[in-house]
């Protein structure tokens, strides 16, 4: 039986923010995809996820059971490519 974890997810500019009950097996990539879809974030940008509570970046395959605790704030940040 999968466990749920209550987290806050927001965009880096903090114009989008949601309190969510997420499956603990969800990965960083899953959360980014859900944010892009639900918040209509620009699809031509790439994103990464950071846990601002722990101060650690998440790898795309990291699942929430290891990378977050209830109440943590996850931030969807752009991966910047221009120089």
């Amino acid at each position: 039986m999968s466990q749920e974890i209550k987290l806050y997810v927001r965009t880096a500019d903090q114009t989008r923010r949601a309190e969510l009950d997420l499956d603990a097996s969800s990965t960083g990539a899953d959360i980014i995809q859900a944010a892009v879809d639900n918040w209509a974030l620009p699809a031509d940008t790439d994103y990464t996820l950071v846990n601002t509570t722990t101060g650690k970046a998440l790898a795309p395959g990291d699942d929430l059971s290891k990378a977050a605790r209830p109440g943590d704030v996850l931030e969807v940040q752009p991966v910047l490519v221009a120089g």
Partner: peptide, 8 residues
């Protein structure tokens, strides 16, 4: 924001 990047 500054975050540490763990090794994967």
């Amino acid at each position: 924001t500054t975050v540490s990047i763990p090794r994967r």
